[in-house]
């Protein structure tokens, strides 16, 4: 995945939109924010941290259920739009990055300031 990442100033192109059809998730490893999760919820693309805030699992291995991601290890659930933890055992929110689709690519702001703004 590393090779898919291209810097465009403070924005990062994560993948092609075609790589993440509706109902699917993708893990992209970035220089700025480490592994991030790209999730397509009925055409709306969300980008969050990929590592569960509970116990280090990769959320991309979990299940996308509606607008929630379910961790594959202890079934913690997070709201993808806000990063809010929805159930035990997660207590800390998932970092959410502002994201958009441009020219068929998923682009996100991964800069630290953007992270702070979203959390």
């Amino acid at each position: 995945m590393r090779s898919d990442v291209t810097d465009r100033g403070c924005r990062t192109v994560l993948c092609r939109l075609a790589d993440v059809p509706p109902g699917r998730m993708l893990r992209v490893v970035t220089e700025e924010a480490g592994p991030v999760l790209v999730a397509n919820v009925d055409g709306t693309v969300h980008v969050t941290d990929d590592t569960c805030t509970h116990a280090e699992a990769s959320l991309s291995d979990g299940d996308l259920e509606g607008d929630r991601v379910v961790c594959p290890v202890h079934w913690a659930e997070f709201d993808l739009a806000s990063g809010r933890p929805l159930c035990f055992p997660a207590t800390r929110p998932l970092t959410v990055y502002p994201a958009a689709v441009e020219d068929g690519h998923v682009v996100a702001h991964l800069a630290p300031s953007a992270q702070e703004a979203s959390s």
């Binding site: 509970h54 116990a55 280090e56 594959p72 290890v73 202890h74 079934w75 055992p89």
Partner: peptide
Amino acid sequence: ARGFVCNYHGWSFGLDGTLNGVHES
């Protein structure tokens, strides 16, 4: 089930039986 999490200390096993993760990792 998606997998099986032990109620005692939260060890989590996949459908293939592998230990996928633990609480307090």
